[in-house]
């Protein structure tokens, strides 16, 4: 099943990936903070991820890696 991995320290919590995700399964972590004080993005439900890469394509900090089996 495809899934994404967000580099928490690189993410600036801008939310563009959330806007881009067609499945609307991304959010800013309500609990995790990175060193800069941002809540990094995270996937709420990997099962729905299609590996379309929209999140990674719009991330200005190239913080998202997309995997597929």
């Amino acid at each position: 099943m495809p899934y994404i991995k967000v580099d928490n320290e690189t993410c600036k919590g801008c939310g563009l990936c959330i806007r881009a995700c067609p499945k609307k399964i991304l959010r800013l972590s309500p609990t995790v903070f990175n060193l800069k004080g941002y809540n990094p993005a995270e996937c709420m439900d990997s099962a729905q991820c299609t590996g379309c890469r929209s999140c990674a394509l719009t991330c200005p900090d190239v913080a998202i890696t997309v995997y597929k089996d």
């Binding site: 495809p2 600036k12 801008c14 890469r53 990674a56 190239v62 890696t65 997309v66 995997y67």
Partner: peptide, 21 residues
């Protein structure tokens, strides 16, 4: 699992100073 999207080596590892978004 295989990575189907990774960061290009043509970008350095330096985090950018640009504003979020």
């Amino acid at each position: 699992s295989k990575a189907i999207f990774t960061k290009t080596k043509m970008l350095t590892d330096t985090p950018t100073h640009y504003c979020p978004g």
